[in-house]
Design a binder for these strands. Sequence first.
RNA 1: GACCCUGUCGUCUAGCCUGGUCUAGGACAAGAGCUUUUCAAGCUCUCGACACGGGUUCAAAUCCCGUCAGGGUCACCA
Length: 430
Amino acid sequence: MVRVRFAPSPTGNLHIGGGRTALFNWLFSQSQKGKFVLRIEDTDKERSKKEFVDEILFSLKWLGFNWDELYYQSERFDRYRAYADKLLKAGLAYIEKSPDGREAVIFKVEPRKIRVDDLIRGQIEFDSALIKDQVLIKSDGTPTYNFACVIDDAEMDITHIIRGDDHISNTPKQMLFYEALGFPIPGFAHLPLIMGMDGGRLSKRTGATAISDYRKMGYLPQALVNYLLLLSWAPGENREIISLGEAVKLFDIKDVNRTAATFDLKKLDWLNNQYLKNADPEALADELLPLLVQKGYIREDGYDRAYLLGLIKLFQPRLSRLNDFAEWADFFFVEEIHIDPAAQEKFLSGDLSREFGLFVSRLEGLSGFSVEGIEKCFRDLVAELGITSKTLIHPLRVALTGKTIGPGLFELIHYLGLERTKRRLLKWAK
RNA sequence: GACCCUGUCGUCUAGCCUGGUCUAGGACAAGAGCUUUUCAAGCUCUCGACACGGGUUCAAAUCCCGUCAGGGUCACCA
């Protein structure tokens, strides 16, 4: 049975690279009907924090990767010590005393060739003569990363190690431990790294790095996962949009790319829009609620749910990030709308008293306040005035929303209602 | 510097294993236009790549060698 693991260190939030590693591990386990193990590598007592553990677990769940088992390295120190003693007895390791009298256990590296069969890259050869003796147990009694990692992977029956490219050079060192301890050697697969737009490592300087940052910005987990997937794997047939479920069926670890990929926010935005426009408005409303409350746009206890859903549907097709809604639809929630100065200069500098006045009085004569009725009012008016639609539509839009862009004008007026429409238009009557 | 990985449009990729169907396909971005209501949605079109140099072959993006470029790792961090 296939068993893979994702082994984050809780010294920070789950970042994009970690999320991607978790994704491929999870995907592989699902496609092989195996198990996905989560192991928190918290051997560094100084830097490991409980809040980061919580954040990582939360982000993994948000992305949709549920684990079958969960372990903490900090609870397994006696295991590492026992194996170090075993190597000591076998004469494969030695003790080194530091000046202050504390002892570390060091593994003796013998010169030889080490071959690694990588599922993605094929065979890689290393020369252990270039590797110096490896610390197993530090003088503070804690195990080193490579040592704890090998023992855990062996004891947890991990069959495949799928991790980032940056671990390739750790592999020969770990291989030495596997052999010294007599553990079966698992399969290895090294994923290419994700780079920032500047070509270097993805860093805070080149953009957000934490998965949670993307959640806060209004990206849907499905979109982010889809994007991460596309970064080093293609479902075939020129497909771009693919669900996790479908990916599980099509995935083969051998098809993963070997080249480092650049993280491109523009494409993520496009993908997010693809998911957003097909999303359930109810779910989007739930997501948006805290933000709208925080902005003072609505009150959590007393808001019109149906009305909010209507507004969301209005903007849904054009949102790149869910949170854009709060900015783009602000004029539905505030009394004093902010009018873009350039737009005002361009569309509202002339005297539109007559046109606005006529339009308002026609709207007042409307029996219902339907989108169709509003549009008919407008079409009839421009026909009678002998002007083109656009000469009036743009000024109306700016006067009502403060912006030159937005949803269709008639739907917009419908949701704004007669009173607010009237008030905002008559403001411009001279 | 040493070792390792990688090199197809600006970006993500298909094609490479099993050479010919590739005057290299798709997507994002960009540019142009359409949508006589905007665009941040939709539709259409355009721009744009096999890193370079040698081989092998009737034929190379595909196989081999070299060069160059980019990245990663060289901790008692993980």
